[in-house]
Every structure is written in C-alpha cells, then in structure tokens.
Design a protein around this nucleic acid. Structure first.
Ligand code: MN
Ligand code: MN
Ligand code: ZN
Ligand code: ZN
Lengths: 137, 137
DNA sequence: GCACGACTTGGACTGATTCCAACTTTGTTG
DNA sequence: CAACAAAGTTGGAATCAGTCCAAGTCGTGC
C-alpha cells in the first residue's frame, strides 16, 4: 500500500522527499478525515521545519494521483480521506463537524446519457447530514 | 409558494422587510444555484442600498426555515437552491463550477441503526463530480 | 564538483464568510 | 402621538482557508 504510493510518486517523476514522506505517513489510516491544518500539525510533530505550503502542495499532488480523496463535507475546511479503495458514504454532524464512514452496500446510481447533460462523471459522493449523539445532548 | 414563504417568515416572528422580500424574489426559480455574491448582485439591482451582511443574514434564515438548501458542491462559495420540494442530485463540473440538477428516481438509501453511529440524519446529498462538455473541449 | 530543474519556504495575498457596534425602522404602551 | 424597546440593517473590520510568489535549497545527471 504505502510502498505503492511511493512507487507511484516516483513513476510520475516526483522526488521522494522527506516532506512528502511525512505527509503520506500522517495520512495513513483507515477512518480518518483530516483537515489540511491537522495534517500540518501531525507533519510538524515529525518534521518541525515543514511548511504549510508544502503540506498543501502535497495534498494536491496526492489528490491528483488518486491516492487520497478531497472531501467538501461542510462549508469549512476540506478533508482528506486516504481510503480510496473501498467506496463509502460519509455521515457529518452539522454542529461539531464529526465525520463517520458508512460502509453501505448501495452502489451509487449511475446516470443515463440524458441525465448527464453531456458531462463525463468522474466520481459520485454521498453525504448524510445530521446531528451526532453528543451534540443532540 | 411565495406567499407561503412570506407567511412562514411572519409566523416565526420575522418582520417582512423589503430587504428580505427582495432576497426571496431573487432566489425564486427552478434550476438555479446562486452564490451569495450572485444573490447580492441581483438584490442590489432591485434595491441598491441592500448590504452584503443582510443578504448573508437572510440566506441563513431561509436555510434554517428550510425554504432553501445550502449546498457545498465544491470547495468554493456555497450555493443556494430554492428547489426543496423535489429531491434531486447535483452534477458539478470541477473545472468551471457549472451545476446541473439531476431528477433521478433513486431514493437516497436510508441507513439502518448500525450505520448511523447514533446520529440523527436530517438530509442526504448526492453530488456527481465530472467535467462538462465545454470544459472537455 | 557543477548546473539545472525540482522542491521547499515564509509571508503576502485573495476570496468567502462572519462579526460587530452604530444606526434605523417598526411595534408597543401610556 | 411620544417615548421606548425590540428587531433589523449597515459598512467595515476581522477571521479563516487556501493560493501565490519570489527567493533559497536540494539532489541527480553529467
Ligand atoms: Mn471516509
Ligand atoms: Mn438543485
Ligand atoms: Zn456533533
Ligand atoms: Zn465546465
């Protein structure tokens, strides 16, 4: 998994810098949905001199490579999801921003030509908005 | 439709100011997904002295009333959708931001208790990301 | 070892939205 | 009607996330 990520980076002609390695390490996990700032925080704790700009650059690169998903769950910070292999939904608490994965056996409905308005579709996203238990009080 | 919106505003104890009326008018339509700035622009053309702050205030109120939907389609500006009666998906061009409605007969899969992680769900959103015909070139 | 392109950096900048304190409007009460 | 309170509006400052940029560093091929 991780080695293939690094391989892919190399295959694209990207250099394997300590900064990129650290960002990839911080993002490793199963049900995490970190903001860029959280990634920066984790990266800094391993490599104190890493900069915000590099974290943003690397997140963009990893997204373009398809190694992570960039999620717009609420109107706030984007979140980055390393789980690209198993398609899943997301559950978001509109009050506190908590995010859950939902492993649900519903294939995303594929659209017919008519519905696509001539667009080519790359990816479909299902987000459920609600209130988590602690926020309900 | 429109009168019921104004009625609802009154029922909640909201005053029916010219500013609120203008914002509601600008938002009236069927397949529109305006940004706050576009709403402001339309509102100003009818009521030049209206302020940005009031537009944002009114958009929040209408959203809380359930009269419009606040959509986070891309990481940019939120979009406001007055079509709350017919559930539908959205199709977004990731290059130019164009938005289409998709009237598709797929009910949003409802989640079982286990999948909900204890959350109460208010609304589910399906967004298809891709590239529109003109952006494909 | 040098040169060059790739990469990183801090800080300035931008765009979207929220916040705020002053002001205006409207509704209520005597 | 006058006076006061409550609700609404305003412009601009502030915040927040993200992008941009010019300068400096690194590292690979020659
Ligand atoms: Mn996820
Ligand atoms: Mn719509
Ligand atoms: Zn919550
Ligand atoms: Zn497009």
């Amino acid at each position: 998994m991780n080695s293939s990520l690094l391989d892919r980076l190399r295959d694209r002609g990207y250099r394997l810098t300590s900064q990129r390695r650290v960002v990839a390490e911080v993002l490793d996990g199963d049900h995490i949905h970190m903001t860029a700032d959280e990634v920066l925080e984790g990266a800094v704790s391993r490599l104190p001199e890493i900069s915000r700009a590099t974290v943003y650059n690397t997140l963009r690169e990893l997204t373009e490579l398809g190694e992570i998903l960039e999620l717009n769950l609420d109107g706030r910070s984007k979140r980055y999801d390393p789980n690209v292999t198993r398609a899943h939904h997301h559950l978001v608490c509109d009050r506190c921003g908590l995010v859950f994965d939902v492993q649900f056996e519903v294939e995303v409905p594929s659209l017919g030509l008519a519905e696509k308005h001539g667009m080519s579709i790359r990816r479909s996203e299902i987000v459920h908005h609600g209130t988590c238990r602690t926020c309900t009080g």
